[in-house]
Nucleic acid binder design. Structure first.
Lengths: 184, 184
DNA sequence: ATTAGCAACTTGAAGCTTCAACTTCAAGAA
DNA sequence: TTCTTGAAGTTGAAGCTTCAAGTTGCTAAT
């Protein structure tokens, strides 16, 4: 299976560049890289084909569907969806055009809320099973329960490092900080 | 830490949509999702800022640098880089414009090889340490050796399922099959 | 010796994301 | 009050990726 990599990326020698990581790390990194390239691509394209939406759009709508009133302020939605405010703004515009979400301007400050419409909700309910069947097939069916636990642990550790410093647009740091403060 | 998620995504009740996955899976999925959204974004933006190239471009050049003659046919490069041929073709054009790679038409069939130039090699040598310092900081410094092993195992399993069926452009399946055949 | 079919690209358009700049609103300082 | 600052969004342009539709060069039938 990994003969491919072995053949196409031969061991370095004096005339070739150094490896920058030790063997264990290098191997883990190659695998991780492949996973986070291939998995999102697979999920995205399936959802696009069978439900006509991207995975990010799905995530946004799913997050809304779980909120009371099916609405949430954009800055919070950005945090939940792991995206920048700018990206979100564009996405909400697209979803609005399709009639799945509408903007409702909030009361305080410049707040804008995104609200899932009934049409959007129906669409989401239709897409959900399709999507999660695929997630199950690609992820949970191939892993043992122990591996799922390991996965959760390791990704949890990684996120703990990533979240506090990720710059999802210049605002995210403050946003995350604020959201954490009010929720603790 | 996860209070955030807990607050912003409350438990479902009768009026809210079902969860589609069980608790363990759901939690693992949320974490995995965050990781493969945040980690590539972090890596990409750092590499872009400090070396003026995307992570994908880095990967392509790094793969070339390890080949004899620092060159490789595009279809094989596509496999190594986990990208579609089309994407690769565009990327190679960009890298050519910057003088880091050149196209060399191969001998058989319609083969085209990409070859890393000296300038590209120097650039890569400059970017490598910068990049891998960040990888180490974000990934390997936060994980224990055991967790690195787990990560490698789990991603290995996932890839085994993903690789054979991933449709990286309509050609990838055949490409992968071919590449595997000739290397086994 | 044609011709059909496939493999390996290339290309242009459409769609998404990022980036930087700009607008608006709310508070607090002066 | 007026000024300043910062938070929350919006927007347009630039850059990348994907998708579909070409090319072009083998190879295997007929």
């Amino acid at each position: 299976m990994n003969n491919l990599k072995r053949q196409l990326i031969p061991e370095p020698d004096s005339t070739r560049p150094p490896r920058w990581l030790n063997n264990h790390e290098w191997s883990a990194w190659l695998h991780l890289l492949a996973t986070f390239t291939l998995l999102p691509a697979a999920i995205d394209s399936q959802l696009q084909r069978e439900a006509g939406m991207s995975h990010f759009e799905f995530g946004v709508m799913a997050a809304l569907s779980r909120q009371p009133g099916r609405r949430l302020q954009l800055k919070d939605l950005a945090v939940v969806a792991n995206g920048s405010l700018s990206r979100l703004s564009h996405v909400i515009s697209r979803l609005e055009r399709r009639g799945w979400v509408r903007r409702v301007s909030g009361t305080k400050g410049r707040a804008t809320n995104a609200e899932l419409t009934d049409k959007g909700y129906r669409k989401l309910m239709e897409a959900g099973p399709v999507h999660f069947r695929e997630v199950r097939r690609l992820v949970f069916d191939v892993l043992t329960p122990q591996e799922v636990k390991d996965l959760r642990r390791v990704t949890g550790r990684l996120n703990a490092g990533l979240i506090p410093e990720t710059n999802l647009g210049p605002l995210a740091r403050r946003v995350r900080a604020g959201a954490l403060r009010q929720s603790s």
